[in-house]
Write a protein that binds this DNA or RNA. Structure first.
Lengths: 212, 212
DNA sequence: TAGATTGTTAATCGATTAACAATC
DNA sequence: TAGATTGTTAATCGATTAACAATC
């Protein structure tokens, strides 16, 4: 009935899954999808889909399901993806370079705006479509370009300092690739991509030495 | 008391956190750490730490805490990180290249063994310390080198096919960077790193247009 | 012994699932 | 109307937290 604000985090993660599924359906020319249809395409149970969506409003039609285009628009709005979201990368190493070339981060609504580093040897050098800027220029760029998202691809040693710089510059959301749990400034959302952790967890589920 | 096998997944994820914390403490020359000490260093509550460890055995000493070196060894064993773990990358694009240069994946117990692609133009070319091999060579390499881990950095379009190839070649654990939920062959553990999803979730938690 | 800290059992909390009335 | 499907309330499930006896 009423949009209740506080959705659990697992729900928010699934919204992104639904959005991807609906966009794909849209490309396939499908105009209506039931929660059962979304289950078939995502693996998330139909009742979970309906429950998740119900946190934000009534989007479906009894007996028919959800209008695909309409729900895409609603989800885009709910997730704040209906206007451009500018991002900057700090750390012009391997990972920063890979992300700067990654299409997913350059597609709407995301706009990759600048890349920073603190290594004097790198400043001014070209990386993909960008010139690497000194980290000191971050606040200026964040301010003039209205940057929302900060991506940290520095070494472990610099990550917390960079996160603090970002928060101070006004960035309210950080994606961190350094293998450290950052201490968040208040009001700053942080998500961590921890590749070593992922590999270690996979090893846990691996039977010991199957191949040898 | 008794090691009870079935630990919940959140527990397994935290084991990796504890291991990192303990290794750091070890480097700092700390020989004993209580669950309260681990809480201070990781943010995971002391009772959670004790509960998590209790799934696998009794590792602590009442009144003192945990022997750091001993617990590191125990955790390494529990997580199957006490012998080399060979990994291959499929997809020699930006992300594959970045991972091939990433130290975290080259440090013990991980050994990056080979990189594959299906683009004839790339085969044989040098990438970091490797020569890119044709994907058809995957089963041979997996077999002779005893590869445990497969990392997928291909496009969305190829990811499922590559996952199937990996499973058929005998790889039992896959780390997937393509933005798609892979259908796992039975007995194959899969973890997904979904960067667009991470960015979208961050946007959800972002207030709308603060900087503009 | 007294103080500190573990490992476990019971209580709580939060998310998922089941059941179902409402409605197109 | 009959069939399909939604949104919600109640029941279940699983993980976290609290309480505490055991023990070094």
């Amino acid at each position: 009935m009423m949009p209740m604000s506080r959705a659990p985090e697992p729900t928010v993660l699934r919204l992104s899954i639904y959005l991807r599924c609906l966009r794909k359906a849209q490309e396939e020319g499908i105009s209506t999808l039931s929660s059962a249809g979304i289950e078939r395409r995502t693996g998330v149970s139909a009742v979970q889909v309906r429950k998740d969506l119900s946190y934000f409003g009534d989007f479906g039609t009894s007996g028919r399901g959800y209008d695909v285009a309409g729900l895409v628009e609603r989800l885009r709005h709910i997730m704040h993806l209906d206007e451009p979201r500018k991002a900057v990368i700090v750390g012009a190493g391997n990972m920063g370079s890979a992300l700067a070339g990654y299409q997913g981060i350059k597609r709407a609504p995301f706009i990759l705006t600048a890349i920073f580093d603190n290594d004097p040897a790198k400043i001014g050098r070209r990386l993909r479509d960008f010139h690497i800027q000194h980290i000191d220029a971050l606040p200026e760029v964040v301010h003039t370009e209205c940057v929302d998202l900060g991506i940290i691809t520095t070494s472990l040693a610099s990550a917390q300092e960079v996160a603090d710089h970002m928060a101070k510059a006004g960035i309210r959301a950080i994606l961190n690739f350094a293998p450290v749990r950052l201490i968040a400034s208040s009001g700053v959302a942080i998500r961590n991509v921890d590749l070593v952790k992922e590999l270690e967890v996979l090893c846990f589920y691996l039977p010991e030495s199957i191949n040898c």
